[in-house]
Write a protein that binds this DNA or RNA. Structure first.
Length: 425
RNA sequence: CGGGGUAUGGCGCAGUCUGGUAGCGCACUCGCUUUGGGAGCGAGUGGUCGUAAGUUCGAAUCUUACUACCCCGACCA
């Protein structure tokens, strides 16, 4: 007997406050709960997926050579005055005073902190290039938080920053990050597109967005089927022009036709150049002993938003369909039994410990409930496979394997590990 | 911030127009039956109706103010 039950509070009726499917399912599947507008609790099941995504992101970013650090959420006003953003950022920047009446803000992003860190601790071009990243909670006092975790005010973000002596070196790191991002979204099992983008408030010259494709996406993407051309459609629309009227037209200066798709922005990479390093006077001496302003890049991924975006892309009437790499439960074991001493339940417990030892994420439904309730809930939370230990176990000594995609397989005891390990390779 | 809407047990809702002291489904607890697609029967627990003030013999219901939340717009990972 464990000292705690699973805390997975399911909701049968769709909560009225949730408009979009990912928000509805995250609530219904007991993954998140609201605390205030745009501010959420992450419950064990949702937090598990969040951490799985975080770890994939961490691994791939670290593979580029970037080193992980952790910067403060609370940031002093003077750094924001330095970068000239204290006034510019607007009310989205949540400001407050400490007991000594000094001004602070909750970090909506960390360019100020990292540029300050680097200018104080780097003196020579020999220490470049340098790439650092963190996975941190951000706070943006959005005018209108929406769609649950999709546009929260508090959210989890991976932000990486790179520093260079020249633009060529910046471009190299930028391309390496771009490749890392592709690997990340491949590993997350998500269909995505990379589009040219507007740099917005962050600033800089070159920037591209990574979008998870989903019909419910807030952004419209314009791309060519013949080539790699892809841009955020908002960059192509003229004033008063309907964005959907772009479909079938030609890209400016090209003979290729525009296709449109909806996307959810989950990543954005920038070549910032010297915007921040200029304002904040971040320099190093070059090989000639001359003072050079640093060239910077920054690279963001909305880790918590990916949880919602994944669901927007992969769901059905029954509930969530998690890609296997981020499913909080890969396998749910559903024994159908009367008494805890029944062979079905005893075997289920053995199977649970066997599969857990094999490194799989397994949940054992140990409730004395009927098949219908168990399978429905297993499907709602998006478990990849349900192993049913019931009728077929009693009659033919086989376990029925119900995949979330609808396919059925019957396996003998001795075949289970092999089958599942292969499925999750 | 502009426009629209909602607020009644954990969730979904009715009751508000035509004031009379709160109801339904689900969930939850107990018992018996049931156990392959969200079980059945019976018995229970739980709210004073977002907050405050007012009108009235009496307010979930009428009046006023406030607050919270949701949707459409600008912003963003």
């Amino acid at each position: 007997m464990l000292a705690s039950k699973n805390f997975v509070p399911l909701i049968k009726d769709t909560p009225a406050e949730a408009e979009v499917i990912s928000h509805q399912l995250l609530l219904r599947a007991g993954m998140i709960r609201k605390v205030a507008s745009g501010i959420y609790n992450w419950l064990p099941m949702g937090f598990k997926t969040l951490k799985l995504i975080e770890n994939i992101v961490r691994e791939e970013i670290a593979n580029t050579g970037s080193q992980e650090i952790f910067m403060p959420m609370v940031q002093p006003r003077d750094l924001w005055e330095d970068s000239k953003r204290w006034d510019k950022f607007g009310p989205e920047l949540l400001r407050f005073k400490d007991r000594h009446d000094r001004d602070f803000c909750l970090g909506p992003t960390h360019e100020e902190i990292i540029t300050d860190l680097i200018r104080n601790n780097l003196n020579s071009y020999k220490e470049l290039p340098l790439s650092l990243f963190q996975i941190q909670t951000k706070f943006r006092d959005e005018i209108r938080p929406r769609y649950g975790i999709m546009r929260g005010r508090e959210f989890l973000m991976k932000d990486a920053y790179s520093f260079h002596i020249n633009l060529e070196c910046l471009n190299n790191t930028y391309l390496a990050m771009r490749e890392a991002y592709k690997k990340i979204f491949d590993r997350l099992g998500l269909a995505f597109k990379i589009v040219k983008a507007d740099s917005g408030a962050i600033g800089g010259e070159v920037s591209e967005e990574f979008h998870v494709l989903a019909e419910s996406g807030e952004d419209t993407l314009a791309f060519s089927q013949e080539s790699e051309i892809a841009v955020n459609a908002e960059l192509l629309v003229k004033e008063n022009e309907d964005i959907n009227s772009l479909e079938g037209k030609l890209f400016p200066g090209s003979s290729e036709f525009i296709k449109l798709a909806k996307g959810i922005e989950v990543g954005h990479i920038f070549q910032l150049g010297s915007v921040y390093s200029n304002n904040m006077n971040a320099t190093v001496l070059d090989e000639n002993g001359e003072r050079q302003t640093l060239q910077m890049g920054c690279y963001g991924i909305g880790v918590s938003r990916i949880v919602a975006a994944s669901i927007e892309q992969n769901n059905d009437k029954k509930g969530i369909i998690w890609p296997k790499s981020i499913a909080p439960v890969q396998i749910s074991i559903l024994p159908i039994f009367k008494e805890f001493s029944d062979q079905n339940f005893v075997f289920a417990q053995q199977l649970y410990s066997r599969l857990t030892k094999a490194g799989l994420r397994v949940m054992l439904d140990d409730r004395q409930e009927r098949f219908g309730k168990k399978i429905t809930e297993s499907e709602l939370i998006g478990s990849c496979y349900a192993l049913v230990i019931g009728k077929t176990y009693n009659d033919q000594n086989t376990i029925e394997v119900l995949a979330r995609n609808g396919t059925k397989t019957e396996l003998r005891d001795s075949e289970i590990e092999k089958f599942l390990i292969k499925a999750f390779q």
